[in-house]
Structure formats: structure tokens, C-alpha cells
């Protein structure tokens, strides 16, 4: 990688808290009632992310406490963590798409002239959206197949499909975010990384609209 990116941020400015996303300031790129729905979904995703992580910590510790203090392991602990990590991942990819946080290698992109960047961003967002919709469809298909097979989680003894219901939904919502980003780039004069974030890697140049 010979091309240089933007210069590093000044060290003093770097701290974890600067990166926090304030959900109350999130404004949907969608008009009217669709926008209201979008804001509600954004908020639900955020809450699921936080709850998922907290529950995972509690669940894992409860297993330790159970093993030492009660002499009994929590059998479903591992399965619950599996359910939570799937929930976190698929609520999170949509949330990340919404806030332009997916990892990408932007060195060549950033070096391109503005019109090319804009064209590339439309193509990137559209193709990414297509991939997400495709995976949403086939994960729905997979979900249906799992329902039909009736496989149980061995410890919890509940159907395995319960823990993967988020998967098609997560891909669908992520696909919608990228589709909207493609549209936003077509109708607006700026280059948008997501519907709410103007392109640029460095947080100091990002604006939540």
C-alpha cells in the first residue's frame, strides 16, 4: 500500500468517548413516516447491541458462579452466548451501515477525483445492497429449512431456528441502508458514506446530519 491516507489525527484528540454515536441526534435520511420508522429501528438496534453485550457478560459470569458456588454448570450458557453473538452481529451490521462504520480500504478511493469517487460510491453502495438482499433472501430460506427440520438446541431444548431469526432481518436492513446510500449519492451533490455520514474516514470530518 503505497498511497497515503489522510494524516493521523492529533494524538490528544484520540479517546474512545469521541467515537460514541448519540442516537438522539440521529436524523433519518428518509421522508415522512418512513423516517419515523427508520429512527425507531435505529434506536432498537442500538438497544439490542448494548443489551446483547451486557447479557453476554452476565451469562458468562453466572456460569462461573454456578460452577463454584452451586456446584452446577449452566448448561445453556454456551447456547445463550451463541444466540447473543448472532443477535449482536446482525443488529450491528445494520447499525454500522447506518453510521458508515463498516471497515473498508479507502486509500485508492480517497485519492480519486471527486466525480470518480461519487460514481464509485454509487456502485459500491448498490452492489453491497444487492449482496445484502441476496443473503437476506437465502438466510430466510435457510431459516425456513431449519424450521422444517426441527433441530433442537441440545441444552436449551428449544428449536434452533429461534436464535437465527435475526439473520435475514439484519441483512435486509443493512441492504436497505446501502440502497438508500446509493440513492442519496445519486440525488445529493456530496459523497455519502451512509445516509447520515458524509464520506471521510477521519471522525473529525464526519458530520452527523
Amino acid at each position: 500500500m503505497t498511497l497515503h491516507d489522510k494524516p493521523a489525527a492529533i494524538p490528544e484528540m484520540i479517546s474512545a468517548t469521541d467515537d460514541d454515536i448519540d442516537d438522539s441526534r440521529y436524523v433519518s435520511g428518509l421522508p415522512g413516516p418512513l423516517g419515523v420508522i427508520d429512527v425507531v429501528i435505529a434506536r432498537i438496534e442500538a438497544v439490542l447491541l448494548a443489551l446483547g453485550v451486557l447479557l453476554m457478560a452476565l451469562n458468562t459470569m453466572a456460569n462461573v458462579v454456578g460452577r463454584y458456588l452451586l456446584g452446577e454448570s449452566i448448561f445453556f450458557s454456551e447456547e445463550l452466548n451463541q444466540a447473543l453473538i448472532i443477535l449482536i452481529t446482525f443488529a450491528g451490521i445494520s447499525y454500522a451501515a447506518r453510521h458508515g462504520r463498516h471497515i473498508r480500504m479507502s486509500a485508492f478511493f480517497d485519492a480519486a477525483p471527486f466525480p470518480l469517487r461519487k460514481t464509485m460510491m454509487v456502485a459500491i453502495a448498490a452492489i453491497t445492497a444487492a449482496m445484502m438482499f441476496l443473503l437476506s433472501w437465502y438466510s430466510f430460506d435457510y431459516l425456513m429449512a431449519q424450521m422444517g427440520r426441527g433441530r433442537l438446541l441440545p441444552a436449551l431444548q428449544i428449536p434452533q431456528w429461534w436464535i437465527i431469526v435475526w439473520v435475514p432481518l439484519g441483512f435486509l436492513l443493512t441492504g436497505l441502508q446501502y440502497a438508500l446510500t446509493a440513492i442519496k449519492n445519486l440525488i445529493d451533490r456530496d459523497v455519502w458514506l451512509s445516509t447520515s455520514v458524509i464520506e471521510g474516514y477521519d471522525d473529525s470530518t464526519e458530520e452527523e446530519v
Binding site: 468517548t17 442500538a46 447491541l49 448494548a50 453485550v53 443488529a91 450491528g92 451490521i93 454500522a96
Partner: peptide
């Protein structure tokens, strides 16, 4: 809450 959410976000981005 903010910290947990931020952890969830990073986790999702890496795990996908």
C-alpha cells in the same frame, strides 16, 4: 450503555 453499545458495534463489524 454507550460503552456496551460501542462494544456491540465493533463486535458486529469484526464478526461479519
Amino acid at each position: 450503555y454507550q460503552t456496551a453499545k460501542s462494544t456491540g458495534l465493533i463486535t458486529a463489524v469484526v464478526f461479519i
